[in-house]
Computed example of a mutant assay.
Amino acid sequence: MKQIITYILLFVGCILLLFKFLYENVPSTESDMLLRLYYIGGIVSGIFAFGAFFVAILTYYNQKKTGDLQRFETTLFNMLQLQQQITNELRYEDTEPDRNPNHGENTGWRTIEKRGRDVFEYFWLSKWFSFREIVDGKISFDEKSWYEGMVNVLTSRGSEAYNQLIEITIFDHYFRHLYRIIKFVDKNKELNDEEKYDYTSIVRATLSRFELVWLYYNSLYGTGKSKFKPLIEKYALLKNLRDEFLTISKDVIEKDYFRKYQMIIDDYQNYLTTDKNDKSKYYIGAFYNSRDKESFIKAIEDFKNSPAAKLDK
Protein backbone atom coordinates (compact mmCIF):
# COMPACT_ATOMS: atom_id res chain seq x y z
CA MET A 1 0.00 0.00 0.00
CA LYS A 2 2.82 2.45 0.83
CA GLN A 3 4.36 1.72 -2.54
CA ILE A 4 1.09 2.52 -4.34
CA ILE A 5 0.68 5.82 -2.44
CA THR A 6 4.25 6.78 -3.36
CA TYR A 7 3.57 6.12 -7.03
CA ILE A 8 0.36 8.18 -6.92
CA LEU A 9 2.08 11.15 -5.26
CA LEU A 10 4.89 11.02 -7.81
CA PHE A 11 2.34 10.89 -10.61
CA VAL A 12 0.39 13.90 -9.27
CA GLY A 13 3.63 15.84 -8.85
CA CYS A 14 4.59 15.13 -12.45
CA ILE A 15 1.14 16.29 -13.62
CA LEU A 16 1.48 19.58 -11.75
CA LEU A 17 4.93 20.20 -13.18
CA LEU A 18 3.71 19.36 -16.67
CA PHE A 19 0.71 21.65 -16.25
CA LYS A 20 3.00 24.51 -15.26
CA PHE A 21 5.31 23.82 -18.19
CA LEU A 22 2.49 23.68 -20.74
CA TYR A 23 0.81 26.77 -19.38
CA GLU A 24 3.97 28.79 -19.70
CA ASN A 25 5.08 27.41 -23.07
CA VAL A 26 1.94 27.25 -25.24
CA PRO A 27 2.62 29.01 -28.59
CA SER A 28 1.87 32.73 -28.44
CA THR A 29 -0.61 32.48 -31.33
CA GLU A 30 -3.02 30.77 -28.93
CA SER A 31 -3.30 33.73 -26.66
CA ASP A 32 -6.88 33.19 -25.77
CA MET A 33 -7.10 31.77 -22.24
CA LEU A 34 -9.95 29.40 -23.09
CA LEU A 35 -8.08 27.85 -25.99
CA ARG A 36 -5.03 27.53 -23.82
CA LEU A 37 -7.00 25.67 -21.16
CA TYR A 38 -8.57 23.37 -23.77
CA TYR A 39 -5.12 22.60 -25.10
CA ILE A 40 -3.75 21.78 -21.68
CA GLY A 41 -6.88 19.87 -20.65
CA GLY A 42 -6.67 17.56 -23.65
CA ILE A 43 -3.10 16.63 -22.85
CA VAL A 44 -3.70 16.25 -19.13
CA SER A 45 -6.80 14.07 -19.61
CA GLY A 46 -4.76 11.72 -21.76
CA ILE A 47 -2.09 11.58 -19.10
CA PHE A 48 -4.69 10.85 -16.41
CA ALA A 49 -6.13 8.08 -18.55
CA PHE A 50 -2.68 6.55 -18.82
CA GLY A 51 -2.20 7.03 -15.08
CA ALA A 52 -5.46 5.23 -14.35
CA PHE A 53 -4.34 2.36 -16.56
CA PHE A 54 -0.99 2.26 -14.76
CA VAL A 55 -2.68 2.18 -11.33
CA ALA A 56 -5.00 -0.61 -12.50
CA ILE A 57 -2.01 -2.66 -13.65
CA LEU A 58 -0.18 -2.00 -10.38
CA THR A 59 -3.26 -2.97 -8.35
CA TYR A 60 -3.66 -6.17 -10.35
CA TYR A 61 -0.01 -7.03 -9.80
CA ASN A 62 -0.27 -6.52 -6.04
CA GLN A 63 -3.51 -8.49 -5.83
CA LYS A 64 -1.94 -11.32 -7.82
CA LYS A 65 1.12 -11.28 -5.58
CA THR A 66 -1.09 -11.40 -2.48
CA GLY A 67 -3.15 -14.22 -3.96
CA ASP A 68 -0.05 -16.19 -4.92
CA LEU A 69 1.33 -15.78 -1.40
CA GLN A 70 -1.94 -16.96 0.14
CA ARG A 71 -1.99 -20.02 -2.13
CA PHE A 72 1.65 -20.74 -1.29
CA GLU A 73 1.01 -20.50 2.45
CA THR A 74 -2.10 -22.67 2.18
CA THR A 75 -0.15 -25.35 0.32
CA LEU A 76 2.78 -25.11 2.72
CA PHE A 77 0.65 -25.50 5.83
CA ASN A 78 -1.26 -28.37 4.23
CA MET A 79 2.10 -30.04 3.58
CA LEU A 80 3.12 -29.42 7.19
CA GLN A 81 -0.12 -30.95 8.37
CA LEU A 82 0.52 -34.00 6.20
CA GLN A 83 4.08 -34.21 7.57
CA GLN A 84 2.70 -34.29 11.09
CA GLN A 85 0.27 -37.00 10.04
CA ILE A 86 3.12 -39.06 8.55
CA THR A 87 5.07 -38.62 11.79
CA ASN A 88 2.15 -39.55 14.02
CA GLU A 89 1.41 -42.65 11.92
CA LEU A 90 4.92 -44.04 12.28
CA ARG A 91 4.52 -47.41 13.95
CA TYR A 92 6.94 -50.11 15.00
CA GLU A 93 5.80 -53.44 16.41
CA ASP A 94 8.06 -56.47 16.83
CA THR A 95 9.56 -58.92 19.30
CA GLU A 96 13.07 -58.15 20.49
CA PRO A 97 15.58 -59.54 22.99
CA ASP A 98 14.98 -58.32 26.52
CA ARG A 99 18.74 -58.07 27.13
CA ASN A 100 21.98 -58.22 25.19
CA PRO A 101 21.90 -61.42 23.07
CA ASN A 102 25.69 -61.33 22.76
CA HIS A 103 26.02 -62.35 26.42
CA GLY A 104 24.47 -65.80 26.30
CA GLU A 105 21.82 -68.17 25.03
CA ASN A 106 19.19 -67.57 27.71
CA THR A 107 17.85 -64.40 26.19
CA GLY A 108 14.18 -63.74 26.64
CA TRP A 109 11.99 -61.91 24.15
CA ARG A 110 9.54 -59.08 24.61
CA THR A 111 6.97 -57.37 22.42
CA ILE A 112 7.79 -53.80 21.49
CA GLU A 113 5.28 -51.24 20.26
CA LYS A 114 6.28 -47.66 19.51
CA ARG A 115 4.38 -44.94 17.70
CA GLY A 116 4.96 -41.46 16.35
CA ARG A 117 8.03 -39.54 17.49
CA ASP A 118 8.85 -42.26 20.02
CA VAL A 119 10.03 -44.40 17.09
CA PHE A 120 12.89 -41.99 16.38
CA GLU A 121 14.14 -42.10 19.96
CA TYR A 122 13.67 -45.85 20.31
CA PHE A 123 15.53 -46.65 17.09
CA TRP A 124 18.39 -44.35 18.04
CA LEU A 125 18.88 -45.50 21.64
CA SER A 126 17.17 -48.80 22.37
CA LYS A 127 16.21 -50.98 19.41
CA TRP A 128 18.31 -54.13 18.99
CA PHE A 129 19.89 -54.36 15.53
CA SER A 130 21.57 -57.55 14.35
CA PHE A 131 24.25 -58.20 11.73
CA ARG A 132 25.26 -61.56 10.32
CA GLU A 133 28.96 -62.20 10.71
CA ILE A 134 31.40 -63.50 8.13
CA VAL A 135 32.91 -66.85 9.13
CA ASP A 136 35.64 -68.42 6.99
CA GLY A 137 34.93 -65.93 4.23
CA LYS A 138 31.20 -66.70 4.13
CA ILE A 139 28.16 -65.03 5.62
CA SER A 140 27.03 -67.07 8.59
CA PHE A 141 23.32 -67.68 9.14
CA ASP A 142 23.98 -68.73 12.72
CA GLU A 143 26.46 -66.15 13.99
CA LYS A 144 25.03 -62.70 14.67
CA SER A 145 26.27 -59.60 16.43
CA TRP A 146 23.73 -57.42 18.21
CA TYR A 147 23.85 -53.69 18.92
CA GLU A 148 21.52 -51.64 21.07
CA GLY A 149 20.37 -48.60 19.14
CA MET A 150 21.72 -47.00 15.98
CA VAL A 151 24.01 -44.98 18.23
CA ASN A 152 25.99 -48.17 18.99
CA VAL A 153 25.72 -49.49 15.43
CA LEU A 154 27.56 -46.43 14.14
CA THR A 155 30.12 -46.58 16.94
CA SER A 156 30.88 -50.25 16.32
CA ARG A 157 30.40 -50.68 12.58
CA GLY A 158 30.58 -47.18 11.10
CA SER A 159 28.85 -45.38 8.26
CA GLU A 160 28.66 -48.44 5.99
CA ALA A 161 26.24 -50.07 8.42
CA TYR A 162 23.76 -47.20 8.13
CA ASN A 163 22.45 -48.33 4.76
CA GLN A 164 22.70 -52.05 5.53
CA LEU A 165 19.76 -52.07 7.92
CA ILE A 166 16.41 -52.59 6.26
CA GLU A 167 14.60 -51.63 9.48
CA ILE A 168 15.39 -47.93 9.09
CA THR A 169 13.49 -47.76 5.80
CA ILE A 170 10.54 -47.09 8.11
CA PHE A 171 11.66 -43.44 7.92
CA ASP A 172 11.89 -43.23 4.10
CA HIS A 173 8.45 -41.67 3.56
CA TYR A 174 9.07 -39.23 6.39
CA PHE A 175 12.35 -37.96 4.91
CA ARG A 176 11.04 -37.82 1.33
CA HIS A 177 8.11 -35.63 2.30
CA LEU A 178 10.21 -33.42 4.59
CA TYR A 179 12.59 -32.87 1.67
CA ARG A 180 9.67 -31.94 -0.60
CA ILE A 181 8.49 -29.30 1.88
CA ILE A 182 11.87 -27.58 2.01
CA LYS A 183 12.28 -27.82 -1.76
CA PHE A 184 8.79 -26.35 -2.24
CA VAL A 185 9.85 -23.26 -0.28
CA ASP A 186 13.25 -23.07 -1.94
CA LYS A 187 11.81 -23.12 -5.49
CA ASN A 188 9.31 -20.30 -4.90
CA LYS A 189 10.52 -17.44 -7.11
CA GLU A 190 8.27 -14.85 -5.48
CA LEU A 191 10.04 -15.08 -2.11
CA ASN A 192 13.36 -13.49 -1.27
CA ASP A 193 16.02 -15.36 0.67
CA GLU A 194 14.99 -13.94 4.06
CA GLU A 195 11.36 -14.93 3.51
CA LYS A 196 12.37 -18.45 2.48
CA TYR A 197 14.45 -18.76 5.64
CA ASP A 198 11.49 -17.62 7.75
CA TYR A 199 9.22 -20.27 6.23
CA THR A 200 11.78 -23.06 6.58
CA SER A 201 12.27 -21.98 10.20
CA ILE A 202 8.62 -22.87 10.78
CA VAL A 203 9.36 -26.35 9.44
CA ARG A 204 12.48 -26.63 11.61
CA ALA A 205 10.50 -25.69 14.70
CA THR A 206 8.32 -28.80 14.28
CA LEU A 207 11.28 -31.22 14.50
CA SER A 208 11.98 -33.00 17.77
CA ARG A 209 15.50 -33.61 19.09
CA PHE A 210 15.74 -37.18 17.80
CA GLU A 211 14.20 -36.26 14.45
CA LEU A 212 17.11 -33.82 14.09
CA VAL A 213 19.60 -36.57 14.98
CA TRP A 214 18.19 -38.86 12.29
CA LEU A 215 18.07 -35.96 9.82
CA TYR A 216 21.76 -35.32 10.53
CA TYR A 217 22.84 -38.88 9.79
CA ASN A 218 20.38 -39.49 6.95
CA SER A 219 21.91 -36.60 5.02
CA LEU A 220 25.47 -37.43 6.05
CA TYR A 221 25.47 -41.19 5.42
CA GLY A 222 22.11 -41.97 3.83
CA THR A 223 19.91 -41.11 0.88
CA GLY A 224 19.67 -37.40 1.69
CA LYS A 225 23.34 -36.67 1.03
CA SER A 226 23.08 -35.53 -2.58
CA LYS A 227 19.86 -33.47 -2.58
CA PHE A 228 18.68 -32.80 0.96
CA LYS A 229 22.02 -31.92 2.55
CA PRO A 230 22.56 -28.75 0.44
CA LEU A 231 19.13 -27.46 1.52
CA ILE A 232 19.88 -28.27 5.15
CA GLU A 233 23.04 -26.19 4.87
CA LYS A 234 21.26 -23.37 3.04
CA TYR A 235 18.49 -22.95 5.61
CA ALA A 236 20.25 -24.02 8.84
CA LEU A 237 17.80 -26.87 9.44
CA LEU A 238 20.10 -28.37 12.09
CA LYS A 239 20.29 -25.14 14.05
CA ASN A 240 18.44 -26.69 17.00
CA LEU A 241 20.41 -29.95 16.96
CA ARG A 242 21.89 -30.91 20.33
CA ASP A 243 25.23 -32.37 19.33
CA GLU A 244 25.54 -34.31 22.59
CA PHE A 245 22.94 -36.72 21.18
CA LEU A 246 25.26 -37.60 18.30
CA THR A 247 27.80 -40.38 18.59
CA ILE A 248 31.40 -41.06 17.63
CA SER A 249 31.22 -43.23 14.54
CA LYS A 250 33.72 -45.96 13.84
CA ASP A 251 34.95 -43.88 10.89
CA VAL A 252 36.00 -41.15 13.34
CA ILE A 253 37.35 -43.55 15.97
CA GLU A 254 39.66 -45.09 13.38
CA LYS A 255 41.29 -41.70 12.82
CA ASP A 256 42.75 -42.15 16.30
CA TYR A 257 42.52 -38.52 17.37
CA PHE A 258 43.00 -39.34 21.03
CA ARG A 259 46.34 -41.08 20.51
CA LYS A 260 47.58 -38.44 18.06
CA TYR A 261 46.31 -35.28 19.77
CA GLN A 262 44.97 -36.38 23.18
CA MET A 263 41.56 -35.11 22.11
CA ILE A 264 38.14 -36.74 21.90
CA ILE A 265 36.52 -35.70 18.62
CA ASP A 266 32.89 -36.62 18.04
CA ASP A 267 30.95 -36.75 14.77
CA TYR A 268 29.80 -33.14 15.07
CA GLN A 269 33.36 -31.83 15.29
CA ASN A 270 34.74 -34.22 12.70
CA TYR A 271 32.10 -33.55 10.05
CA LEU A 272 31.97 -29.75 10.42
CA THR A 273 33.62 -27.51 7.84
CA THR A 274 33.71 -23.94 6.56
CA ASP A 275 34.36 -25.18 3.03
CA LYS A 276 31.14 -25.19 1.00
CA ASN A 277 32.72 -27.49 -1.57
CA ASP A 278 33.46 -30.28 0.91
CA LYS A 279 30.54 -32.62 0.25
CA SER A 280 31.72 -35.21 2.78
CA LYS A 281 31.03 -32.86 5.71
CA TYR A 282 28.42 -30.39 6.89
CA TYR A 283 29.00 -26.79 5.95
CA ILE A 284 28.67 -24.63 9.05
CA GLY A 285 25.57 -23.01 7.55
CA ALA A 286 23.63 -26.15 8.50
CA PHE A 287 23.88 -25.08 12.15
CA TYR A 288 24.08 -21.27 12.00
CA ASN A 289 21.97 -18.73 10.12
CA SER A 290 24.25 -17.23 7.47
CA ARG A 291 21.85 -14.27 7.07
CA ASP A 292 22.75 -13.02 10.53
CA LYS A 293 26.12 -11.81 9.31
CA GLU A 294 27.62 -10.80 12.64
CA SER A 295 26.73 -14.02 14.46
CA PHE A 296 27.62 -16.18 11.46
CA ILE A 297 31.06 -14.62 11.04
CA LYS A 298 31.67 -15.08 14.77
CA ALA A 299 30.65 -18.76 14.52
CA ILE A 300 33.11 -19.27 11.66
CA GLU A 301 35.91 -17.56 13.57
CA ASP A 302 35.17 -19.57 16.71
CA PHE A 303 35.29 -22.78 14.70
CA LYS A 304 38.54 -21.85 12.95
CA ASN A 305 40.12 -21.06 16.32
CA SER A 306 38.91 -24.26 17.96
CA PRO A 307 41.42 -27.08 18.53
CA ALA A 308 39.30 -29.50 16.48
CA ALA A 309 39.51 -27.30 13.36
CA LYS A 310 43.30 -27.41 13.42
CA LEU A 311 43.55 -31.18 13.35
CA ASP A 312 44.40 -33.15 10.26
CA LYS A 313 40.94 -34.55 9.54
Rank of each mutant, 00 (worst) to 15 (best):
T200R: 11
D278Y: 12
L16S: 08
T247P: 02
Y257K: 04
Y147F: 15
R99N: 12
I4C: 02
R204D: 08
G104M: 08
L76S: 02
Y288F: 05
V26F: 09
Y122M: 04
T206R: 11
Q85S: 00
L237H: 07
E294T: 09
L16T: 05
V151I: 14
S31G: 14
I43L: 11
D68F: 06
I43F: 04
L10R: 14
Y39A: 12
L37D: 11
G116E: 07
I265D: 07
L237A: 04
I112K: 05
L16K: 07
G137Y: 08
Y271R: 03
S219W: 03
D267N: 00
K239W: 11
N102S: 07
H177G: 04
M150W: 09
A161M: 05
E195G: 01
G158V: 00
Q83A: 12
D98P: 01
V55G: 02
A286H: 03
S45F: 09
N289L: 04
S145L: 03
F175S: 05
E294S: 13
G46V: 14
L22F: 08
L238A: 03
L16C: 09
R99T: 06
M79W: 10
I57Q: 11
Y221D: 08
R180C: 05
F53I: 14
Y122L: 07
F53Q: 13
I5V: 14
L9Y: 13
K279A: 01
L272F: 11
